[in-house]
Nucleic acid binder design. Structure first.
Length: 586
DNA sequence: AGGTAGAGCGCG
DNA sequence: AAAGCGCGCTCTACCT
């Protein structure tokens, strides 16, 4: 146990610092030993709280326990303070409440304020605002920020975790989830460096020059005119699917919907301009000039990331469609002068995760040190890389038709352990059961309506229609649980990767702040930092001199994540990594 | 007028 | 070519 001398007395450094809103205008900090016993409690005036945290970080680097990272951490970041680790009570509550690894969840399973769905709009702390300007109901859907409630919840969570079937595994998940919450707040604070001029250039090239308000860009208007001419309907409202569908039928184009994949199968002079129009219309609506004005400020795009926003454990995002930035606009993501973007994505993360979870040696070998799909071809399982890809995706998603349906049986013969794992997960889901990820995040129980339909369909007098509907619902749920175990474990791998990476980057020596990067704020203008995360992909914004070191950190963090989750596994997680000034379109 | 469902399409 | 999983966002149609 580390000790520090302070004012003549010897003090044990805390393993945990539980913080909560205390008395008026103060944050109460309860320092706890590793075993949870209290060392010291103090009130810190809220104005001095960031300084207190900075000091504690330098001294011991405790794990900060707080109600909700999205509430507490932005205030520290705004004051230029980062923390190494935390325990996010809100996110962890959700995991523990549902996890199959937790035998006796006690009161965690009861509906409480900790379960309230949160208002996902992360509020910027107003200038000079303190935690005391927030009452519990003002955001986070009523998650309690007061000390006593946080303390009681933390105790419940510790009991549940200590008594879990595999506490070590679960603790990894809780730590990774919390680290993700820190990353999410940091990504928002730093912002994505966004080149407005480049974005405008891409829009102008694709759509024509920016039109006046309410006007259609010229190239879109031209395509629309071509469509109307080709369909012989000069007044056609192309943006209305029902009207468009009727016009297509009048022109004897036999489609059931107006979606592009169906249109593409037909040969008619209206099709090409229509597809071009749709593409342009989408770009304009989702990421046009209005988007640019709304979302990019001082060269930074700051989406709100929502850790734990997806049942599988993936993040969601709100604000400008952060997870759907079209490839076309990737070049607008550009490093500041003198800085670089270090981009990395994992090749075939989900199938590799499946190989590791199931211990399928043949699948691990197919991916060893190379493209997994090519490896499946080389192993003689299928003829082409495309077949391998479609087959593997079919295995993960539950595809039964077309090429994927044809290839999956071959995968089942060649990769029996991997296929058994996903097939079992599907079977469990079809029965209404619960499945869990590698680290213990469990799937939600079926809706009452789903269960009712299954029970009803089993009654002797059930109508054939009812039975068919119930069977379809069962298969739908089976595909969901099949994918849940893999998608969810891949999310755990990615969180572990992020967690290791942010700690590695935090150890980089600060550089003198450059004018260029000051838009990222006091913490991030002085060293390499994460600016983007998308399921299996990260981008680090780094001073040119730190770019190589950042690349190494990304690689070694991926390695560490693999070893942490799957000790002894032969499965590797290769990255595609580039150092550029401008993000490549790929 | 205002809320919501569905279509459609972007991302992994 | 999509299919089979998970999302968010914008638009229109349709409801109260």
């Amino acid at each position: 146990m580390t000790t520090t001398a302070q004012q003549g007395t010897t003090r044990r450094t805390p393993a945990w610092c539980l913080v909560g809103r205390g008395t008026r205008e103060a944050v109460t900090v309860v320092e706890l030993d590793a075993d949870g016993s209290e060392l010291e409690t103090r009130d810190v005036p809220s104005a001095q709280w960031p300084e207190h945290v900075r000091h504690a970080e330098e001294e011991a680097g405790p794990r900060w326990v707080w109600s909700d990272t999205a509430t507490w951490y932005p205030r520290l970041l705004a004051a230029g303070v980062t923390v190494s680790r935390c325990h996010d009570l809100r996110l962890i509550h959700v995991i523990l409440r549902h996890s199959q690894l937790v035998g006796d969840a006690g009161r965690l399973r009861e509906a409480t304020a900790w379960d309230a769905p949160i208002d996902q709009a992360l509020e910027e702390p107003a200038r000079g605002a303190t935690l005391f300007d927030l009452d519990d109901s003002s955001r986070s859907g009523g998650v309690p920020h007061a000390l006593e409630e946080a303390r009681a919840e933390f105790a419940r969570q510790r009991t549940a975790t200590d008594g879990a079937a595999d506490p070590g595994r679960l603790r990894l998940l809780l730590a990774a989830e919390s680290a993700g919450a820190l990353v999410a707040a940091e990504l928002h604070a730093a912002g994505i460096p966004w080149d407005v001029a480049e974005h405008d250039r891409i829009l102008t090239e694709a759509l024509g020059p920016r039109p006046g308000t309410g006007q259609t860009p010229s190239r879109m208007a031209e395509a629309a005119a071509e469509v109307r001419t080709a369909l012989g309907d000069p007044m056609l409202g192309i943006d209305s699917p029902p009207k468009l569908l009727r016009a297509l039928h009048r022109a004897e184009i036999d489609v059931e919907s107006t979606s592009q994949w169906e249109l593409m199968e037909h040969d008619h002079p209206a099709i090409d301009p229509l597809l071009r129009y749709k593409k342009m219309s989408r770009l304009l609506a989702a990421n046009g000039w209005a988007w640019l004005e709304e979302w990019v400020e001082e060269g930074r795009y700051r989406p709100v990331y929502v850790p734990g926003g997806v049942v599988t454990g993936r993040w969601a995002a709100s604000g400008g469609g952060a997870l759907q930035i079209p490839r076309q606009l990737r070049p607008a993501l550009r490093a500041d002068a003198g800085w670089r973007l270090v981009s990395a994505d994992v090749s075939q993360l989900e199938p590799r995760v499946l190989a590791a979870m199931s211990g399928d040696r043949a699948m691990a070998e197919a991916g060893a040190d190379r493209d997994l799909y090519s490896g499946i071809v080389d192993a003689g399982v299928v003829e082409t890389r495309q077949e391998a890809k479609v087959g593997v995706l079919g295995a993960l998603y539950g595809g039964t038709t077309g090429d994927s349906g044809r290839v999956v049986p071959r995968l089942r013969r060649n990769f029996p352990e991997a296929m058994r794992l996903v097939d079992d997960a599907a079977a469990t889901g079809e029965r209404g059961g619960t499945v869990s990820t590698w680290l213990g995040r469990s799937s939600p129980a079926p809706e009452a309506e789903w269960t009712r339909a299954q029970t009803g369909a089993n009654l002797p007098d059930a109508a054939a229609r009812e039975q068919e509907r119930a069977r379809r619902a069962a298969r739908d749920r089976g595909r969901f649980t099949r994918n849940f175990v893999v998608q969810g474990t891949a999310a755990e791998w990615a969180l572990s990767w992020l967690a290791a990476l942010r700690l590695a980057l935090a150890r980089f020596e600060p550089v003198p702040e450059t004018d260029a990067a000051t838009a990222s704020g006091p913490v991030f203008a002085a060293r390499a930092h994460l600016v983007f995360f998308l399921h299996d992909e990260v981008i680090v914004h780094a001073p040119a001199a730190q770019a190589e070191a950042a690349a190494s950190a990304i690689l070694s963090s991926a390695d560490a994540a693999g070893r942490l989750l799957f000790p002894g596994s032969v499965v590797d997680f290769p990255l595609d990594l580039t150092i550029t000034e401008r993000s490549p379109t790929k």
